[in-house]
Write a protein that binds this DNA or RNA. Sequence first.
RNA 1: GAGCCGGUAGCUCAGUCGGUAGAGCAUCUGACUUUUAAUCAGAUGGUCGUGGGUUCGAUCCCCCCCCGGCUCACCA
Length: 506
Amino acid sequence: MACSVEAKGIEAMEEKSDILAQRRAKLDELRNEGINPFANDFRATHTAAEVHAAHTDHDAEALADCGAHYALAGRIMARRDFGKAAFLQLQDRGGRCQVYVAQEQLGEDAFALYRKLDIGDIVGVTGTPFRTKTGELSLRAASLQLLTKSILPLPEKWHGLTDVETRYRQRYLDLMVNPEVREVFKKRSRIVSAIRDYMVAHDFHEVETPMMQPIAGGATARPFVTHHNALDMTLYLRIAPELYLKRLVVGGFDRVFEINRNFRNEGISIRHNPEFTMMEFYQAYATYEDLMNFTEKLICHVAQEVLGTLMISYGGQPVDLTPPWDRLTVREAIVKYGKVDPAVLDDHAALLQVAKKLEIDVEPTIGHGKLLLEVFEAVAEPHLWQPTFITQYPTEVSPLSRKNDADPEIVDRFELYIVGRELANAFSELNDPIDQKERFLAQLAEKEAGDEEAHAMDEDYIRALEYGLPPTAGEGIGIDRLVMLLTDSASIRDVILFPQLRPEKQ
RNA sequence: GAGCCGGUAGCUCAGUCGGUAGAGCAUCUGACUUUUAAUCAGAUGGUCGUGGGUUCGAUCCCCCCCCGGCUCACCA
């Protein structure tokens, strides 16, 4: 018995020293005093940003006379106590506002409550604006109410939260204490809105197509596999919406777009997350050349709208988005950046030698088109820092693109590169059902030969083409990568709120 | 999947050529009615990522594993 009493004593001591336990004890104390630590009867009239905006030009005298009265709600991010008065930083969705709490204004009871509050608590404050000695616009609290008690301590006020793992796992904390992170995600939202507005303004119709597909088509990538119990069937998370969107063009939606997630069961890197956001859009009676012009205008519109400039910087290097952007063919890019003799580009054996010299790992049986693309990616891609359209892709690597009328070895396709990264991929769509079926069959042969990423046969898509897909051009724009570019973010995880991580160890 | 780097208090970090650890901030107690990382005095706080090995003794050395970052591979 004596033993258990002693154990209890130790437990109590440990509890007293533990911040979580201290905060829990405060919770109980507040409840015992009849205060609801999770009240929901406060209505803010303004945000911190609105208060600042209303009084930017007001000096102390003007403020005293303005007669304004505000109710703000937010989280206490900092406090500086001076006995019977204190300053605190209140943070809401619009920013921060300093609040001056003094026993003189609040009264003894309310001030006693204030003293029980902690950094991290969410409160409602009413009061009048004034300027402190140092000129900071502040709210003189007339009343203070606890709205939500926080029982975990916030990261440090000066260094903040820098541990990358914690920032990704506990994004709520990251957003709470790192204002620049909040800005990135606000910007992301504005970018998506600007894109959507631009598309709608150009008569595109927004749609949503299946994320769970019986055939994962529209791209070459390994899919995630799942199972529907009631239908007892295998389903794939989509790797692209392409084939569904084109079905809609067949159906008469001449201009469609979708901004949504794709899922690809592949490696994770600074540029790849298993789920990522793409905008795909299709325009009937247009060609890939029309889309190049459109893409320039779209991205410039977004940059101008969100950043107010076309001269941006990424990773410390300038990027000039001013149109017109450079246009190079795959071959021209290889010659320009790889210092490769143009004659070699048509000589398979010689090009294989070039690839070998570049230490590109290629199968000896590789097709010429694939080989060209491999060499292009090795020698040219890293140099494409300023916005550049690359055209004339080999037919072999473009199973859904329309062949060029003059040269069937290439297709009417472009990819857009900025800061050495592929940002968009577009082509005039293949709308000949017989040609499409043959390309699917060729892909099928590759699949049987062991290529896991080869495109699957989609009979219904062929059927749709047999009804007639008007001449159409389509494009996919990687939204995450565009956001990375426009927010100067080094990692895709910095523009995805909850990037994929392994589960936290318990 | 491979290579390199990292994991120490709530947060940001230091440290121990092997003798069970420190600082700042946060927290607690006290002082303080215009601060701006407020200040001053005192105090609490750690299974040093997990498991094993070597050793009289491991947070430190060795091995396995877990988690993360970067590079590469796959890809957008």
